[in-house]
Design a protein around this nucleic acid. Structure first.
Lengths: 155, 155
DNA sequence: GCAGTATACTTAACATGTTAAATTAATTCA
DNA sequence: TGAATTAATTTAACATGTTAAGTATACTGC
């Protein structure tokens, strides 16, 4: 038994907190992906970076930050880790000495190819349990929400 | 100009990564709330705890964790902060010595009453820009997603 | 061609997320 | 009843989130 005692409600209740609703849904999904990624020795964010890198021959840190939706300081640390693990190789950009470009190593591509199918299996589970139609509707609303409201911290 | 070079796409693209879509939408919302909370000297998570506390006369840490959707270690640190700021008062539960119960102090209630209206203003903006109907549809889908898929880490 | 400004990335500092282990108190059941 | 187990909270360790500041390079306009 837990010690809880009610008072009169004010403000919107938590069921109508949008950031909370988004967080809960995200956690419902991530609680399935996280253990799988962990078995491969990766965090969610490291996997986002690897995935973004897999789609490009080479990509600089700024683009990588946008595509993996990470802030620059987080990306710096994650790239340091991925380089140390030899999953990613860094080179400096000849045409702009401020910039670095990154590529997956062979080991990085191998991990990508191992994790990818595991990830797809979990997506398939989710689609089956929640329903493909509702999942598409959710994607559409989320994309429009982001499109309409934007990200007020974007440049 | 950024250094990006394409390769053949594999796997689902990021536009169809559900955790990413949820994260982007969440960030679109939070990028509006965060500066407001910051002006009040609070983080998003501290505000979640205050909000949960405002709805109860007293509540123990486990219930608080569930209602503010925080893991126990985070909650421990946040409550330490809120106690130091005298926004929250801790007492031990007479009937179970393992347990602590928490209440908002007068100062805590005052902050709650200051932040609440600012928060509602931002919600009103969002509802107006995105559309009340679509917002309700989004809430409904998110709630069902969480209901159907659950949180595999829950007890 | 250089002073001023902007850009790309990193570092710093502190808060939170995540998992595992530690601590203490309650509960169970042989 | 007391050993074993379970439950509530905290601590530890490391990764990421967030904001501000630092560093080096590129750009801009005079």
């Amino acid at each position: 038994m837990s010690a809880v005692r009610h008072t009169a409600g004010q403000l919107r209740d938590f069921q109508h907190s949008l950031p909370m609703a988004l967080l809960r849904a995200r956690e419902a999904a991530m609680s399935r992906f996280r253990p799988m990624l962990r078995r491969h020795g990766l965090t969610e964010q490291q996997w986002r970076v690897i995935r973004a890198l897999a789609a490009y021959q080479e990509i600089d840190a700024s683009e990588l930050a946008k595509r993996s939706f990470l802030l620059a300081p987080s990306l710096t640390r994650i790239l340091r880790f991925l380089e140390r693990e030899a999953l990613v190789k860094r080179s400096s950009d000849a045409s702009d000495q401020r910039r670095y470009v990154f590529v997956l190593t062979a080991k990085g591509r191998r991990i990508y190819e191992e994790v990818g199918p595991d990830s797809e299996l979990l997506y398939a589970d989710i689609e089956k349990e929640f329903g493909a139609d509702k999942l598409e509707a959710l994607y559409a609303l989320l994309a429009e929400f982001y499109r309409v409201l934007g990200d007020s911290t974007a440049p």
